[in-house]
Nucleic acid binder design. Structure first.
Lengths: 189, 189
DNA sequence: CGTCTTCCATACGGTGGCGTATGGAAGAAT
DNA sequence: ATTCTTCCATACGCCACCGTATGGAAGACG
């Protein structure tokens, strides 16, 4: 009565997409192989080709799933702290530049590497980026900044955050936390 | 008398490495396939396995070649504009965020994607990043900034530059040039 | 002129991955 | 209980790629 399909653990498209996103974070696009996913899900590819037309079908589903999640995240953040634009900017920097949300950042990178070679992926990434930049721009404008400055700060914020995620700045400096705080102030204040 | 090997066009390791770097920019690490490179160089893999032990041998050579080139670039820039630290910072931003040097930026991304999966690549990227951050830090310190601020600005500069390269900011805003100038001022001034 | 070294071509076996075809198990429907 | 539908297993052909083995061309060298 509770679940719609409680009886036996059957795989659906969502399970394959989730596994594909895991691999995407671990190994990038070229790691998403049908037979590898099947082994990981402990089934055979007979199951895969039941739920998906082919590998490309899965990849498109992965793109859509990721895009929807990112857009939803933005909307959720917009509702979470209405009117509190400055803390929100710090929150974005904190979330994306920390080591938690590591898997999310790995997917971000893999997505952008994917976008270099695939038009569909490029379109999705562009859409997500545009939404984020617009979200940031509105936040800065709400604090009374002129449009150019607001757009610039928003671009600087996201470029910094993504750039930081692919600089292996492991042991550059022990004062990394203080540096990050200085930078956050420089971007948001 | 001029060239050491002028007689007939023979391939050496450098030719294979250059082709590998081309593919790396176009398709990423997984595009570097022995037989694909051979076809592109219009030879067979018999040649490849004469010059290289195996595919891994080529990949290591690619890493070394790229690292040496990046380090050399830094040293060249240090000599080019001695004492002119502020123009130098703007120059870095200009070179790395423009659409020229596109291939170089593509390799940067591919390199960092590679570093996620390969310890040797991670070590090389970390070395290059450390050198660049140190180069930037010295520039800001030479302008009289305290160490923490100099390090932070340097980190912000490179994170922004690399982040920008993987944001498909194609049509975000028509005033991209003005925004880039605003950001450059914010980072360097 | 013959031999040696350098460099590449050819041919082969092996692996991993894609997509298809077909059969079968197990619950749902009647 | 029989049939139908859903979901997965098995088996197959195909291709791309890796690495090896071996032969051969062409200049260097005596």
């Amino acid at each position: 009565m509770a679940k719609p399909e409680p009886s036996r653990q059957q795989l659906d498209r969502a399970a394959w997409i989730k596994a594909a996103l895991d691999i995407l974070a671990e190994q990038g696009l070229d790691g998403i192989r049908v037979e590898v996913l099947a082994k990981r899900l402990k089934v055979t590819k007979g199951s895969f080709y039941w739920h998906f037309k082919d590998r490309r079908d899965l990849l498109d589903a992965v793109l859509e799933t990721w895009k929807d999640g990112r857009i939803r995240d933005i909307q959720k953040q917009t509702r979470a702290l209405p009117g509190e634009e400055l803390p929100r900017a710090y929150h974005v920097i904190e979330v994306y530049s920390a080591n938690r949300n590591r898997k999310g950042m790995l997917i971000e990178i893999a997505m952008r590497d994917w976008a270099r070679r695939d038009a569909a992926a490029a379109a999705v990434v562009e859409e997500v980026d545009a939404a984020r930049l617009e979200f940031g721009r509105r936040g800065f404008e709400a604090r009374g900044m002129p449009p150019l400055e607001a757009s610039s700060r928003s671009l600087l914020l996201y470029a910094y955050v993504f750039g930081l995620s692919l600089m292996s700045c492991g042991k550059f400096d022990a004062d990394m936390d203080e540096m990050k705080r200085w930078i956050a102030d420089r971007i948001a204040r």
